[in-house]
C-alpha cells in the first residue's frame, strides 16, 4: 500500500512535469552582483519589459536591499513572458501574489522563469526571503494590462515599467 502511495506521488510529479505546468529552471546562468549595474543586461536603462522579435516579452528585474528595480513591472496579458532576474547583494525572494510565480534570487546566479498572465489585473510583488532589516518594506507591484494596450506602449518605448 505504501509503495503504491509513493508511486502515485512520483507519478503525479512526472505527469505535472510532462504536461508543462511550472517547471524548475531549465538551465543555469551566472551574473556578477558587483558589476550588474555597470555592464550587461541588468544595467538600469535595460531593466523592465522588452518585446522580443517573436512577440514574447522579456522582463528584466534586479533585487537589492530593499527594493526591486523596476519597482512596478508591467506585462501584457495572454502573452508568453520570460522573467530574468538576479540579486545585487543578498538572497531575495520573488513572489507575485495571486499567481504561482515564485522563485529565489541568489546573488551570483540568474533566475529565469517562463510565465504567462491570463487576465489583466494588479498584483503585489513582495520579497519572500529575509534580506535584512528592511525586508518587510520590500514590496513591488505588477500590472498586467491588455495585450493591445501593451503593444501601444511598447511602440513608444523600448523598456517598459509602470513606475510612477
Amino acid at each position: 500500500m505504501s509503495a503504491c502511495t509513493v508511486g502515485l506521488l512520483v507519478g503525479m510529479a512526472i505527469f505535472a512535469g510532462v504536461h508543462r505546468a511550472v517547471m524548475p529552471q531549465a538551465w543555469i546562468e551566472t551574473a556578477n552582483p558587483r558589476t550588474v549595474h555597470i555592464a550587461g543586461e541588468f544595467i538600469e536603462s535595460n531593466l523592465g519589459s522588452a518585446v522580443e522579435a517573436d512577440g514574447s516579452v522579456t522582463v528584466r528585474a534586479l533585487g537589492q536591499q530593499f527594493s526591486f528595480t523596476p519597482q512596478c513591472v508591467v506585462v501584457p496579458s495572454d502573452t508568453p513572458v520570460t522573467i530574468r532576474a538576479t540579486s545585487a547583494d543578498v538572497v531575495h525572494g520573488f513572489l507575485i501574489t495571486g499567481t504561482n510565480i515564485n522563485t529565489m534570487l541568489v546573488p551570483g546566479y540568474i533566475s529565469i522563469l517562463p510565465v504567462k498572465f491570463k487576465t489583466p489585473g494588479e498584483h503585489t510583488m513582495p520579497c519572500q526571503e529575509f534580506c535584512g532589516l528592511g525586508h518587510e518594506g520590500m514590496w513591488a507591484k505588477v500590472k498586467v494590462i491588455d495585450k493591445a494596450a501593451f503593444a501601444t506602449l511598447a511602440a513608444k518605448q523600448r523598456r517598459l515599467t509602470c513606475v510612477e
Binding site: 506521488l9 510529479a13 505535472a16 512535469g17 511550472v22 524548475p24 510565480i101
Partner: peptide, 8 residues
C-alpha cells in the same frame, strides 16, 4: 514536495 504545488 511537489514542485508545481510548491510554487504557490
Amino acid at each position: 514536495m511537489s514542485y508545481q504545488l510548491n510554487t504557490s
